[in-house]
Nucleic acid binder design. Structure first.
Length: 950
RNA sequence: AGGACUAUAGCUCAGUUGGUUAGAGCGCAUCCUUGACAUGGAUGAGGUCGGCAGUUCGAAUCUGCCUAGUCCUACCA
């Protein structure tokens, strides 16, 4: 073996070997276990969150595969409608100076497909580097023909079931992307704005209570006055009660609008008068519905002022002949230009009472960053309420379980207040809506134009398909069954659906998880007709944040690329990567400074195993995961530790008799001990994995392999292996234990660190008599109760106690570790002597002893530094080695600790209430502790006295 | 406004049903190139578990209030 661990040299070849041999394909034998990967964006790249989730999924899949389940990890990517379309638009614009409209729909889509071919391999390459054992044969893309068939079918079924409808509704309109977006894609953030107080003249000489001939309405959007349909006041607001049912003569637009009463109005806010613009505000829309107000749309698709307003009744039918008009001066103005113009005109007309600063939440599209415009448009919607009910029930009754449990609350609170879902998008890239229109504006839903004609007996009338596409989340909603071949009832569906677990971040519980549950339960049924859930467990991971706890984002320039952690990156390359191709280039300097500060030397190549192990070790129940380079460095060192331990084992066992062909073996205390400890480790790791505590699993592996196997067992094996007088049976026993425990540890660790375990396993497998082709197909280690040896564990604790006692004296007294020292045992029992006799070779080697002397009662001990193992004293003679004052100081320090403890225990045991109320076992335990501490303190005090007396 | 979550060593985090001398990794201090490993080894220092009350024989753990921070949901024009 190479002297140091070099991940780069071992990783990729193993992945190729596994993939080429079809080990990722479901075995077809055993209980099915399946996971679908949350599909990443095909044209994107994996971020740390993906790396975390994929590491966890792979750990689960590898574990279950080793446990001989029939495991399927379904892989695939999604087409990410808006994101991809924007990206390709920018690219075409930059490279050819053309817009998508210049190209036309078909040509533009060709460009998207070209881009997909070009960049789509990125994700799959990264997944391979991470070691993800996904079934590549079943890879799916949401825009595949087969998948499209499923999407279309779901749309048609939902439509036929009355759960999809089309209508003119107010939607979140993105004026830059020219598409509707869902509520979830709108981000509201605090922004500084103004509140304009505008005077609206009362019609027919009406006066307010205080004698004014106008009402004052406050608004954050003065420009929408062009679409005002009413002014509303609270029905019980005394100031305005006499005006309810009267009218306003609108300034600027020559229009008379009613004053209405609605208890939505808060009399305390502003003046208590609200202008109502049903076509441009969600609350106003609702009020418009209640009061049958006409809806006056004044904006075009760019959110610029129309030449002619579009006027609709409450049912969304256009009012063909109407009096509403927009003054020429404003026609075609952008909404913000129009705002200034209107404010100016109102000011000159003396109708602007005042302008106040006002903090507001501006709703912005999460892709474009522009303030979204509520706009009346024809869209397709899913009625979510009927779908939500069974989806809520499935979580309530435990058919679906969230881990950690608390996420169920998040799910419930959203599901119980769910809004209808606008699923149409005015994009080109996506699944085209399977609906056709005739020239009259009637529409027909079906599988194809032919299908529609036939179904509705339309003859050869003109039909054109809906231009719009479906929200990407609509198609990813059927990911679990769509990837398995639905609508065909495939073998895969029968076997692997419902899937076992979904691993995802909490940020997409609403976007994706909830919708997947709703759609799957509606479409997929068991043989008895009951709904199939998409997955039985939802494991919700935390979100990976940077070293300051900030979310990683390109614009902040704090993203880490998992591959850079694997391969390493120089600081200059990292800076270039973080500051290149930025949306806001002015931030580049700041980002460069931060980056150089945090990563002065760039990043080392830690390797996939260290990255995966680290991610798993960070996966506790919290919501946020701060990523700290120190952790991955420590775990890279852990890999190196395993590597070197294996190197030691090979040096001592290769071409030697390790008992793989039988033969007599004699096991030392150390051998029995490590086998026993291995059982405990196996139990801990498996328990942790079964409860999705990958941090605990990682911890258990780390401490067993490093702190027990490497730190103690390997050292304890040396006195045996290097003993010229050791018997063949002893040598065979120790070698066999060395390789067997290492081999089992590798299997235990394999789900978390696939590469290094495979590499080493291949080298040592003959030493344990195995000839399997890959560790990933070997059985997962199981706890075996009969290999637990409590006596061995206790005895080895004794051995460790002696060694640590001596080391403590050496360390504290400044005795060179190279200097052999004599050791005496005093006040020991027969049991102590028995352990000593059987194990003195361990002590001599590990504590570097010159001699070992057992003192019988009455034997005179020389003046010594003392360590205690139980009641037995372990003595290092001071003569020529130890300074009197130093030893006194050391003993006083020990005594101070013991005093503290005795005080605490005495207080506790002196309290009658404790003794009366606490369980007997607790009291007994505390008494024993006190007795032990007292005995130890006594011994040490005698030592102090003895030393002082000189 | 409502709700959730977090607060433990200098840093990043564990701590299961209340009974541990409160742990780990990194960092720090002292020492060590002994034949797996300096990406290492030995020893050690370091925490009144955010604050205040309460329940209890006993609280990092349960309850209430407070403080600080994060997030989600809904928003008053």
């Amino acid at each position: 073996m190479e002297k140091t661990y070099n991940p780069h040299a071992i990783e990729q070849q193993w992945y190729q070997h596994w993939e080429a041999n079809g080990y990722f394909t479901p075995s077809g034998e055993g209980t099915p276990y399946s996971i679908v990967i949350p599909p990443p964006n095909v044209t994107g790249s994996l971020h740390m969150g993906h790396a975390l989730q994929d590491s966890i999924m792979d750990a689960l899949i590898r574990l279950k595969r080793m446990q001989q389940h029939d495991t399927l990890w379904q892989v695939g990517t999604d087409h990410a409608g808006i994101a991809t379309q924007m990206l390709v638009e920018r690219k075409v614009q930059a490279e050819e100076g053309l817009t998508r409209h210049d190209l036309g729909r078909d040509k533009f889509l060709d460009r998207v497909w070209e881009w997909k071919e070009e960049s789509g391999g990125n994700i799959t390459r990264q997944l391979r580097r991470l070691g993800a054992s996904v079934d590549w044969d079943r890879e799916r893309f949401t825009m595949d023909d087969g998948f499209y068939k499923g999407v279309q079918e779901v749309f048609i079924r939902l439509y036929d079931d009355g759960l999809i409808y089309r209508g003119k509704r107010l939607v979140n309109w993105d004026p830059k992307l020219h598409t509707a977006i869902s509520d979830l894609e709108v981000i509201s953030e605090d922004e500084a704005g103004h509140l304009w107080h505008m005077r609206y003249p009362l019609a027919e000489g009406e006066k307010t209570a205080d004698g004014k001939d106008y009402l004052v309405v406050a608004t954050t959007r003065p420009e929408t006055m062009l679409g005002d349909a009413a002014v509303a006041v609270h029905p019980e607001d005394e100031r305005y009660q006499h005006l309810i049912g009267k009218f306003i003569d609108m300034p600027i637009v020559d229009r008379r609008i009613p004053i209405i009463a609605d208890d939505y109005v808060d009399p305390e806010f502003g003046t208590g008068c609200v202008k109502i613009t049903p076509a441009h505000d969600f609350n106003d829309y609702a009020m418009g519905q209640r009061h049958s107000l006409t809806m006056i749309n004044i904006f075009d698709k760019n959110a610029a002022i129309l030449v002619e307003p579009e006027v609709y009744n409450t049912d969304g039918k256009p009012v063909e002949v109407h009096a509403e008009c927009i003054p020429q001066a404003y026609q075609g103005m952008d909404r913000y230009v129009a705002r200034d113009a209107i404010v100016n005109d109102l000011t000159s007309a003396g109708l602007l009472e005042k302008i106040e600063d006002h903090a507001l939440k501006a709703p912005r599209g999460d892709r474009s960053g522009l303030v979204i415009e509520p706009l009346l448009t024809d869209q397709w919607f899913v009625s979510t309420k009927p779908l939500a009910e069974p989806a809520i029930a499935a979580v309530e009754d435990g058919r679906i379980e969230f881990v950690p449990k608390q996420w169920e609350n998040t799910y419930f609170s959203w599901m119980r207040d769910i809004q209808d879902w606008c699923i149409s998008r005015q994009l080109w890239w996506g699944h085209r809506i399977p609906a056709w229109y005739d020239d009259e504006g009637n529409f027909y839903v079906g599988r194809s134009e032919e299908d529609v004609r036939e179904k509705h007996k339309l003859g050869d009338i003109n039909l054109r398909q809906d231009d719009d596409v479906l929200d990407t989340w609509f198609s990813s909603g059927l990911w679990t069954f769509g990837t398995m071949g639905w609508p065909d009832m495939t073998e895969a569906l029968k076997k692997y659906h419902p899937t076992d677990v979904l691993v995802t971040g909490f940020d997409i519980i609403f976007f994706w998880v909830a919708r997947m549950i709703m759609m799957t339960m509606h479409i997929m049924k068991h043989e008895d007709g009951s709904a199939q859930v998409p997955f039985k467990t939802i494991y919700v991971t935390g979100l990976i944040r940077d070293e300051n706890g900030d979310k990683m984002s390109k614009s902040k320039g704090n993203v880490l690329d998992p591959l850079d952690l694997i391969d390493g990156i120089s600081i200059d390359d990292l800076v270039t990567k973080r500051t290149g191709n930025m949306m806001q280039p002015q931030l580049a300097k700041k980002i460069e400074k931060q980056t150089r500060k945090h990563f002065p030397d760039g990043m080392a190549a830690y390797g996939t195993d260290a990255l995966r192990f680290t991610l798993c070790s960070l996966a506790s129940t919290g919501r946020d995961i701060k990523f700290d380079l120190g952790r991955i460095e420590g775990n890279r060192n852990f890999c190196n530790k395993i590597w070197n331990a294996a190197s030691y084992v090979l040096m001592n066992c290769e071409d030697q008799d390790c008992g793989q062909k039988g033969g007599e073996v004699e096991l030392t205390l150390a051998d029995k001990w490590i086998v026993s400890r291995l059982q405990q480790a196996e139990k801990k790791v498996l328990t942790a994995m079964d409860s999705y505590r990958f941090d605990h699993a990682a911890e258990a592996l780390y401490s067993f392999i490093w702190n027990e196997y490497c730190a103690w067992y390997l050292e304890l094996s040396k006195p045996v292996l290097w003993d010229d007088n050791a018997s063949e049976a002893q040598l065979r026993g120790t070698r066999r234990t060395l390789v067997r425990v290492l081999e089992a540890s590798l299997r235990l660790a394999h789900p978390l660190m696939p590469y290094i375990t495979e590499e080493i396993w291949q080298k040592i497998k003959p030493l344990v008599g195995k000839d399997g082709d890959s560790i990933m197909l070997e059985p997962y280690p199981e706890f075996e109760a009969d290999k637990v040896d409590a006596q061995a564990e206790a005895d080895l604790d004794w051995v460790r106690g002696v060694i640590e006692g001596v080391r403590n004296i050496r360390g504290e007294m400044g005795i060179s570790p190279a200097k052999p020292i004599p050791l005496l045992f005093s006040k020991g029992q027969a049991a102590d002597q028995a352990i000593l006799d059987a194990n003195s070779q361990f002590l001599i080697k590990l504590a570097k002893l010159e001699s070992v002397t057992w003192l019988e009662a009455g034997d005179e001990a020389p003046l010594s530094a003392t360590a205690l193992v139980g009641e037995m004293e372990v003595l290092v003679p001071m003569a020529g080695l130890i300074d009197k004052d130093a030893e006194l100081a050391r003993l006083q320090k020990e005594l101070a600790k013991l005093d503290g403890e005795m005080k605490r225990l005495n207080g506790k045991l002196g309290n009658a209430k404790f003794v009366d109320n606490a369980p007997e076992a607790v009291v007994v335990k505390e008494r024993a502790k006190l007795a032990e501490a007292e005995a130890a303190a006594n011994t040490l005090r005698q030592q102090v006295a003895k030393i002082e007396s000189i």
